[in-house]
Amino acid sequence: MKKQLIFINLVLLTLFSSCKNKEEIAPVEEVKANTFDVIVDLKIEKDDELILFYKDPSIAYFDAKNTVYNGVKGNAESQIITFSIPEGILPNDIRFDVSSKKEQTPIIINSITLSFEGRIFKIEQKDILKYFTPNEFIKFDETKGEASFIKNGESFDPYFLTKPTIYPEIERVRGVKL
């Protein structure tokens, strides 16, 4: 009887010890913020800082407070840049500033993807002008997806504004039933 009791205690001790060890070595899954993302696949050869401005229904115009900055290292190869809008904000409009450096060489935009909760809308290179309008500081070649920059004295602020054709797509990605 005493041997059985010792055996049972050893078994229980082993079980509890192994359970405790499993908890300690189990990988902890990282919880990521549920953000609305704008993912840009581009080729930019010189270091720069790109900016995404966003508005939601409570914001009347683009301002510096509602921005996501993304410092980019220049690279001869295409790279993916992700702008994550702060959690809890679902934009209804965006503006994409493609350079803040006057000496920037032309960049190639391969695609722009909007993503939220597994819903995505991808704008391919050939369709960029269908959804975005370049301002006066950008000459955009839609066949190559190339944005070259126009210097106008001291002024330099190249960006793309959205066209009305993108608004239903933004709403769909946000999860709004149309």
Rank of each mutant, 00 (worst) to 15 (best):
Lys2Trp: 12
Leu5Cys: 10
Leu5Phe: 05
Asn9Cys: 12
Asn9Trp: 07
Val11Asp: 02
Ser17Pro: 01
Cys19Asp: 06
Cys19Gly: 10
Cys19Met: 11
Lys20Gly: 07
Glu24Val: 08
Ile25Lys: 14
Ala26Ser: 15
Ala33Val: 08
Thr35Asn: 13
Val40Tyr: 00
Lys43Met: 13
Lys46Ala: 15
Lys46Pro: 00
Asp48Trp: 01
Asp48Arg: 01
Ile51Glu: 00
Leu52Gly: 04
Leu52Tyr: 04
Tyr54Gln: 11
Ser58Thr: 14
Ile59Thr: 09
Tyr61Phe: 14
Tyr61Cys: 07
Phe62His: 04
Asp63Glu: 12
Ala64Tyr: 04
Thr67Tyr: 02
Tyr69Cys: 10
Tyr69Arg: 15
Asn70Thr: 08
Asn70Trp: 01
Gly74Tyr: 01
Asn75Arg: 12
Asn75His: 11
Ser78Tyr: 04
Gln79Thr: 09
Ile80Ser: 14
Ile81Gln: 00
Thr82Ser: 12
Phe83Gly: 06
Phe83Thr: 08
Ser84Asn: 09
Ile85Trp: 05
Pro86Phe: 06
Gly88His: 05
Pro91Met: 05
Thr105Ile: 10
Pro106Thr: 01
Pro106Gln: 02
Ile107Pro: 00
Ile108Trp: 01
Ile112Ser: 00
Arg119Pro: 05
Phe121Trp: 04
Ile123Ser: 07
Lys126Arg: 13
Lys126Asp: 01
Ile128Trp: 00
Ile128Gly: 02
Thr133Gly: 07
Thr133Ser: 12
Phe137Glu: 01
Lys144Gln: 11
Glu146Thr: 14
Ala147Cys: 05
Ser148Arg: 13
Lys151Thr: 11
Asn152Trp: 07
Asn152Leu: 14
Ser155Ala: 15
Pro158Gln: 09
Tyr159Ala: 06
Leu161Tyr: 08
Thr165Trp: 01
Pro168Thr: 09
Pro168Trp: 03
Glu169Gly: 03
Glu169Cys: 06
Ile170His: 02
Lys177Leu: 12
Lys177Cys: 06
